[in-house]
């Protein structure tokens, strides 16, 4: 391997294709991750509610769903959704981006539901007992006492999930949907260069996740400061 040549090629590629990475690729990657986390959070909340329901069949459905999603590879789920969804719902025919977004969302929802469930269950049982002994209903106990405390456990973990998803979206390049990793494949196809675009995209991914995790850390510290007011 000739490092000088690689370096020169990277400079050339950057000048020629910077927008493919920083605008097109990043646009797809970030939008996909944002949609996944946002919809995944809503879906995940619902699954968490089912998981904590008093009605056992609801708990079973939620548990089976979570276990299957967590127990199978994400790439496999992408393939299944990608090929099965258009056959079930004709509307999704040739809507690759949407199919991939749905697959990622269903995957993320399972993980988010566990984040929410553990965040809620991490609140001391004594809080529930104190609230109920004062005559608060189950609903009031949840909204007034448990959720405000659980949110402090949930939000940081949700941020981490967002970072995980950003990296996981790279699997979507299998279907050429336009994300960062897809750009690598496209550039590789036109220039016959492999190492160079890979190194470039690695830098982009790293900067993206590093900056996000630092922001998250700041946010977390500020939230914890709120505790000691």
């Amino acid at each position: 391997m000739n490092f000088v040549t690689i370096g020169q090629n990277i400079v050339k590629l950057t000048i020629k294709y910077w927008d493919k990475f920083l605008i097109t690729g990043m646009g797809y990657t970030l939008s996909l991750a944002a949609i996944t986390v946002a919809v995944g959070a809503i879906l995940g909340s619902l699954i968490a509610l089912l998981r904590m329901s008093k009605f056992p069949p609801f708990r079973w459905i939620a548990a089976i769903y979570t276990e299957i999603i967590r127990g199978t590879p994400m790439l496999l789920q992408l393939y299944l959704f990608y090929f099965a969804l258009p056959q079930l719902i004709p509307f999704l025919n040739r809507k690759q981006y949407l199919c991939v977004a749905i697959a990622l969302t269903c995957n993320s929802a399972a993980y988010v539901s566990e984040i929410i469930r553990s965040g809620i269950q991490a609140v001391d049982i004594g809080q529930t007992e104190a609230a109920r002994s004062l005559g608060l209903s189950q609903r009031l106990t949840m909204t007034q006492i448990i959720l405000p405390q659980a949110i402090k456990n949930i939000l940081p973990a949700l941020g981490n999930e967002f970072i995980m998803i950003i990296k996981d979206t790279s699997l979507a390049s299998t279907f050429f949907i336009g994300d960062l990793m897809t750009q690598v494949l496209l550039i590789k196809g036109t220039t016959y260069l492999t190492m160079e675009p890979l190194i470039m995209v690695a830098v982009v991914y790293f900067v993206l996740t590093f900056v996000l995790s630092k922001l998250l850390g700041m946010f977390e510290r500020r939230m914890r400061r709120g505790d000691v007011r």
Binding site: A130, L140, Q144
Partner: peptide
């Protein structure tokens, strides 16, 4: 029936006053 616990179980995200007024306001 008022209840007092070994580990106090005050609501940490609310002030002392809010701890005391929550149930009277919301429940009664």
């Amino acid at each position: 029936m008022g209840m007092v616990f070994q580990h106090f179980n005050l609501f940490p995200h609310k002030t002392i006053l809010q701890n005391m007024t929550l149930a009277p306001i919301k429940v009664k």
